[in-house]
Design a protein around this nucleic acid. Structure first.
Lengths: 304, 304
DNA sequence: ACGACCTGTTCGGATATTCGTACAATGACT
DNA sequence: AGTCATTGTACGAATATCCGAACAGGTCGT
């Protein structure tokens, strides 16, 4: 019962789960060599090899796999027990690890995060931006923010931020003076457009919406294809073409007059993002506080 | 999920359970100051006091008690998972912690332990001698050896050592020459006897048994009262009186001729000791191996 | 087939943890 | 009430752990 090499076991579980020393090291902000030492120490103590590792792959041995499976629930229990201490405090303390799309991190999250953190001084927010990742929990995050309605079971979705967001097409005044102002989405086919490619490789479709409700999807000729929205906006401001992005994201440029929105009557709207978390896992206090905060915000917004 | 202060949590659980820093330190062979540091570190990290401690008592706070309760199953799971690695080895490796009466440690255990350890080179045997303790599991032992049939629930008893043991009364030849040889237990009342007091304070009664089966309990006049059997034997060898103890324990002195047994026809017998362990706990591999070993020994002895 | 990148590991120096001793405080015994 | 053994803690020394850079080896792309 006594003298458990708990720290090393925890390290082993992390490495085995991520199948990588360096990835596990990055996630817990320690060096890879430390993890290497820990695993070696543990294997020496047990007298059994737990991980078959080459420089390009880390695979648990049979013993390692079995140990990992049996270890995981215990570690999860302990994490939950540790978090339970928060019940004895007025305000929860701990870390909240979110994985959000880059665009959300720049538009709707700053405001929400600022108010949430002001309310909970003890909570540390750790935001990773990743547009592609789906298995948010498996990567060690408490929750993720996504736009699509997830189909994964046991996932709970909580609205976060505005429930209605808009795409806006916009261009620099100089560009419009030179190339004319499009009056109909079809006109875009004659324009120079700045397209966005997701990290998954998929292209963002330019979807427009008539006042009546009819949708119109267009893939305009690409002048530029980029993956980072900042670059797209910057190029648009310099008059290189029409950009199509979140209204929230373009707002500063529009306010400054660097960009002018076009096709306002066709401005498409879409539902806002959701915070997703797994209902089967223990809910850490910081996450619980965040969800409560979002629910209160949502309720307040609906009441208006 | 990550960055659990597992080592400190383990320390906290040990200290909280034993309600003593020094006791917990002794049991895991580390210094008390180290445990003090660990608990302070954990409390600082959590921002919550877990143990109320004066120099004479250690009591969990509400938060500490709750944390302890929630922590224990996880730690037990991990210990079990760790032990599970033994399944991937031909011979189990680990530590077996036994708590046995002092007399057993000197008579029947040496032979058993020697053969068992020869069979399992990877096992470390840690024997504590304690005649009074009952809650063997709570103190961190894997199993205990006791003579009395335990009434505790969930305890499994396995015969260990000879199933029939004998008490023997004996004295030095010189003493018998001077004071005569008792022919009947009643004669002991006229002799000088060396009595044994258990650490509980109870005196060992001299129980005799007629060939027919009739029992006769006598509390002879005390010349000497001792708590350590070695002292009693030594004094008897020097002719100070009649000693009454385990035949196994007196055998060397009898063989040397330093002592001569008396009242052989009244020699009382009693059932041998049992190994007790808790059926509700996970059974560590070393304990499992030991029980199997004892069962095999028992079967072999019965077959003869 | 070869090169280039990325991986896990090694090694000496830096850091945090642990130890042993000394001390103040507590509570049981007389 | 006084005494005293025993407990938890503080502090400098010893130790183990951790880090960062260099190394060796595998894998993928060309």
């Amino acid at each position: 019962m006594t003298d458990l090499p708990l720290a090393d076991l925890d390290v082993f579980a992390a490495v085995a789960q991520h199948r990588s020393f360096r990835a596990a090291a990055k996630l817990r902000n320690v060096s890879a060599s430390s993890l290497s030492d820990s695993v070696r120490r543990l294997e020496a103590r047990l007298g059994v090899r737990l991980l078959n590792r080459t420089t390009r792959s880390v695979t648990p041995t049979d013993a390692g796999e079995r140990l990992l499976q049996r270890l995981r629930p215990g570690l999860a229990d302990i994490a939950a027990a540790l978090d339970g201490v928060n019940d004895f405090r007025d305000r929860p303390v701990g870390r909240l690890r979110l994985n959000v799309p880059g665009i959300v991190a720049r538009t709707i999250l700053p405001d929400i995060a600022a108010r949430f953190l002001a309310l909970h001084p003890g909570i540390t927010l750790e935001v990773s931006t990743n547009d592609a990742l789906i298995d948010v929990i498996g990567e060690g995050f408490d929750a993720g923010v996504r736009y699509e309605e997830s189909l994964q079971p046991d996932m709970i979705a909580v609205p976060i931020g505005p429930r209605l967001q808009h795409y806006v097409a916009a261009a620099a005044p100089g560009y419009l003076a030179a190339h004319g102002v499009p009056a109909h989405p079809q006109d875009l086919l004659q324009h120079r457009c700045i397209l966005h490619r997701f990290s998954s490789g998929r292209m963002l479709a330019w979807v427009f919406e008539e006042k009546g409700g009819r949708e119109l999807s267009i893939l305009p000729p690409a002048r530029i294809i980029a993956e980072t929205s900042d670059l797209e906006v910057e190029l648009a401001c310099r008059g290189l073409g029409i950009v199509f992005s979140f209204e929230d994201f373009l707002r500063p440029a529009l306010a400054r007059g660097d960009l002018v929105s076009v096709l306002q009557d066709w401005s498409p709207s879409f539902s806002g993002p959701f915070l997703y978390y797994n209902s089967r896992h223990h809910m850490p206090s910081p996450l619980r506080a965040f969800v409560e905060f979002l629910r209160a915000e949502h309720k307040r917004a609906e009441a208006v």
